[in-house]
Design a protein around this nucleic acid. Structure first.
Length: 533
RNA sequence: CGCGGGGUAGAGCAGCCCGGAAGCUCGUUGGGCUCAUAACCCAAAGGUCGUGUGGUUCAAAUCCCACCCCCGCAACCA
């Protein structure tokens, strides 16, 4: 198969709290896709970064008496450590206050303005006369006209979403004084202009998108409205249009373009043309894939906003985004003890448990099509039963067979051989359809089948009966499966497969194709890979 | 009547698009094995598939309708 140009974009975590294990669960599919495509020989860029701007950052900085950047840096460090601990194989992980990113975002903004897709408009906005500035809905409180309770103005717990007239006479949360509605100059992105193109995009892709993406996108397409791309903030990417110098761009505008700016910067660093991955007219004969991995609350931004922005640039951008939208990882047990701080921060989890085994758990039990509840008990079951008892035990009973010092030479069982040969396509198809859960389950099936094969052959009896040939064939066949598991499991459990490759003295890089195992290698390095919890 | 995802043995899930004898893992019970981290293998028990004495059909977990519950969205939180 010919090489493909693959972008894996993972949603940008927001820098106002430590990275949560749920982020790992919903983003893992991205790392699996990237690793798989690299093994297939495709050119891959896997990108993301820390989303560091926005209203919340300013509010927090004020509350904590530091700069928004201080807060961003604090969490950015946490994100990087956690993502590294979980073996996320980013080609580029940046941060949105980075100069390169800001400059490119401004260039794109000007382009959209020149193309007539960003236009000036005047609208009434909440103005605090005491603070002397326009304030965001989340910075003011109102009395909800539906339930009668006091609430922040962006939305009420009762479900009501306030409209403009409800904001009349709202109270500023910063200074406590009344606000008023004032005319404000804003810059609007004409999202509604892309309705037809976005509908076609959905039509073209609805068979491979997950159901939640398709339906959620449909909902917005029916009534697309233009969006305010400017914000009255001090912290962010400056609006590069004359007359709007005191404003910043909407965080989503620039965070979404981060996928592009990351690729551009990576291209400069590594000396390749970033357009290979994003432009239809560059390497047009190569298939392109752009995966966007995120949780369900992010759907419309990736399926509508980003493609619309790329279309608006009118520069041959590839917009056939492959939506990989996860549901939510919930933690019922955790909500109870949240006030005491819970142990479900990603970095903390990485220190308490084996990260490969957690990756395996999320690949098998993650929120792929519906919310998944995470508890330590259910994780312990996956770890002890699937990872240790089934997989690690297969390694040990094969490679640490009593008295075995070197791997005997034998003939691989024909049925096992064919099964292993076929499973590459089966698992590969699942991964390319972003059915990670099914892919993982297929691999687990192979492991269980191999344990069954082992039992059926009874190598302990073959060994005693001095049926050396049969014994050698049995062990060699199982070792052959293990060797191929170092490939098949590489996208899911990269640290473990590296250790197993080491045991089997496999020197070549992992590839998505059948490999053989070397006979007569020493087995004295083999040791247990996991401990039970 | 706002929109979307979900509700399947004690637990966690698959099956639903495209209707055709309810599957998988864990747990439980019984048996086997002794290579392996008390791991592995075989077998059994366990479900009116959220509710409906609702519709379509020869046939419904699957299609249609009504209702209930959990989660998300609802465009200035990101």
């Amino acid at each position: 198969m010919s090489k493909r140009n693959v972008v894996v974009g993972i949603s940008w975590p927001y820098s106002n709290s430590n990275l949560h294990i749920g982020y790992i669960a919903s983003s893992l599919s991205g790392d699996i896709l990237a690793r798989y495509h690299r093994m297939k020989g495709d050119d891959v860029v896997m990108v993301s970064g820390t989303d560091s701007h926005g209203t919340k950052m300013e509010i927090r900085a004020k509350a904590e008496g530091c700069s928004p950047k201080d807060i961003a840096d604090r969490y950015d460090q946490n994100f990087r450590e956690a993502l590294k601990a979980f073996s996320f194989s980013f080609d580029k992980y940046s941060i949105t206050y980075d100069k390169f990113h800001k400059e490119k975002c401004k260039e794109f903004f000007i382009k959209l303005f020149e193309n007539g897709y960003i236009v000036p408009r005047t609208e009434k906005r909440t103005f605090c006369t005491t603070c002397n500035k326009f304030v965001a809905d989340t910075e003011i409180k109102i009395v909800c006209p539906v339930c009668g309770k006091e609430t922040k103005a962006d939305n009420c717990d009762c479900g009501y979403v306030p409209v403009e007239k409800d904001l009349e006479g709202a109270t500023c949360l910063i200074c406590g004084h009344k606000t008023e509605l004032r005319e404000n100059s804003i810059l609007v992105f004409r999202l509604s202009a892309f309705k037809k193109q976005l509908k076609k995009l959905l039509d073209d892709n609805k068979d491979i998108w997950r159901a939640n993406s398709v339906n959620e996108t449909k909902k917005y397409l029916d009534k697309l409205i233009d969006r305010d791309f400017s914000r009255d903030l001090a912290w962010g990417v400056e609006v590069p249009i004359a007359g709007y110098e005191d404003k910043k761009v909407w965080v989503w505008y620039e965070a979404l373009l981060g996928y592009i700016t990351d690729t551009m910067e990576l291209g400069e660093e590594q000396g390749f043309d970033w357009q290979r991955f994003w432009k239809t007219n560059v390497e047009p004969d190569r298939e392109k894939i752009v995966y966007m991995c995120h949780a369900k609350d992010n759907i419309m931004f990736h399926s509508i906003m980003l493609p619309a922005m790329l279309m608006g640039l009118k520069d041959n951008f590839y917009t056939n985004i492959h939506m990989v939208s996860a549901e939510y990882l919930t933690m019922n047990d955790v909500k109870i003890s949240k006030s005491q701080g819970n142990g479900f921060e990603a970095l903390e989890m990485s220190k308490r448990f084996d990260t490969d085994s957690l990756r395996f758990h999320f690949a098998l039990n993650g929120p792929e099509k519906k919310d998944a509840n995470f508890t330590l008990d259910t994780y312990a079951v996956t770890h002890n039963s699937d990872v240790v008892n089934k997989f690690a035990n297969l390694i040990n009973r094969t490679l640490k067979f009593k008295g075995l010092e070197t791997l005997p030479e034998g003939i691989v069982d024909e049925n096992v051989y064919n099964r292993v040969k076929d499973i590459y396509n089966i698992v590969g198809d699942c991964i390319e359809k972003t059915e990670i859960k099914k892919a993982t389950s297929e691999i687990l099936d192979l492991i269980m089948e191999t344990n069954r094969f082992f039992d059926d052959q009874k190598p302990w009896a073959q060994f005693k009966e001095d049926d050396k040939t049969s014994f050698n064939n049995t062990i060699f066949t199982c070792a052959f499966v293990l060797a191929n598991l170092t490939n098949l499991l590489e996208p899911i459990m990269p640290k473990t497969t590296e250790k197993l490759r080491n045991f089997l003295q496999i020197d070549s890089k992992p590839t998505w194709e059948l490999i053989c195992v070397k006979p007569n290698i020493s087995l004295d390095k083999v040791e247990p890979l996991f401990s039970r919890i």
